[in-house]
Design a protein around this nucleic acid. Structure first.
Lengths: 205, 205
DNA sequence: TTCCTTACTTACCAGTAAGTAAGTATTTTT
DNA sequence: AAAAATACTTACTTACTGGTAAGTAAGGAA
């Protein structure tokens, strides 16, 4: 990974760990062979870095849907989503939306716009998966798929936020309850174990 | 309201507006006839102030349950909870848990402990209300009341987090869907309008 | 009248934040 | 071989953070 991408990767993790307003360039520099000022060479302002972190996550989600997701059922795509969140619950990390929304009011317009974009893409993705599953009779729920997607995302998001407070096990409790309510025939346990090493920069979301 | 309580009130609002790590003593001082250093007279450190903000909210919830809540049905208590969150969605404010949990890793032990306490009290409260409503046949749900309380809180919490991003209307959408799923015969619309002025320091939570 | 407390103010500290400017070693292009 | 771009470092500025120290005006108690 080149320096630029490494900076973005570390910033991404920092945002998920402690929130956007609680990390600095010097925090990032401590995790790599670089001085804080060198980060300014790659990202003029912290805002630019923040924008890039969200842009890359947006791109990852879009690429997954374009390429891998194309050949996967809604169920398999949802499993991927749940697995990502499951893994993050083990790392005491939050999803980008959960980490960024509380500080939303402190961001400028371009940043807010991009968060809105990320939010829209994720909701649309989950909504389409849910609608497909309902049509295939593998899930059932009242109301629109859009509304149900909102509930799914909000449950995953808050289970990560609450995990460090209440305990890691609440992710499985909440996710399984959600799946039961949706009439799904699979549970978090079916997703497989989380590997020991967590150095791959994948995440949706 | 005396100076000390006013500081706590403003700090509370700031935490809900922009998060704990994004406000300073000078931000608070700008909202009252006082210099930043005077706040140190009342609260030696920012941590002490944070602790007091949570303590007061904890006390408010406990007092409500001890006094008013005693004579109210689970339904009326839940209505009170939903109404509080509904009102906050209009102010683009977050609940304390939603505002504090993303920064959780940056807090020291006493602070984390108190947030955990607040979280526990709220969940227990909602859980008891839900259990009562199920027994009274006014609500129905699978699984334990504790798990269902977790879902209710997480939905309310994230709807506030997402409101500034997606739009205020999502609070009503998500809350109503939640109530429908629970088999409740009431909706957010039944809670009455939110008044224009929002200067009363009540909030649970 | 003196003393002490309360509730501040002003002035300051050390530390850290984001950001800049100038210089340098290394690689790439011409 | 010279020039230029790349990827930094060192050293800095400005602004602001939480926190401290010393002083003071107002009020009540001895």
């Amino acid at each position: 990974m080149n320096t630029r991408d490494k900076i973005v990767y570390i910033a991404d993790r920092m945002i998920r760990d402690v929130g956007y307003n609680a990390f600095s360039y010097s925090d990032i520099s401590e995790h790599m062979q670089i001085r804080p000022a060198a980060i300014h060479y790659h990202f003029h302002t912290k805002n630019d870095l923040g924008l890039e972190v969200i842009r890359q996550e947006l791109e990852r989600v879009r690429q997954f849907r374009r390429e891998e997701g194309k050949n996967l059922s809604g169920e398999d795509q949802l499993k991927r989503l749940f697995y990502t969140f499951f893994r993050q619950s083990f790392e005491d990390q939050h999803c980008l939306m959960g980490a960024l929304t509380p500080d939303f009011a402190t961001f400028d317009e371009p940043m807010q716009k991009r968060i809105r974009e990320l939010c829209g893409v994720i909701l649309q993705w989950v909504s389409l998966c849910l609608e497909g599953e309902r049509l295939a009779d593998r899930m059932r729920f009242n109301g629109t798929a859009d509304d149900r997607a909102l509930l799914v995302i909000s449950t995953l998001l808050s289970s990560l936020l609450l995990a460090p407070v209440i305990g890691r096990e609440i992710f499985v409790r909440m996710a399984d309850q959600l799946l039961e309510d949706l009439g799904a025939h699979w549970r978090v346990d079916d997703l497989g174990d989380v590997p020991e090493d967590f150095d791959d920069p994948h995440s949706y979301t």
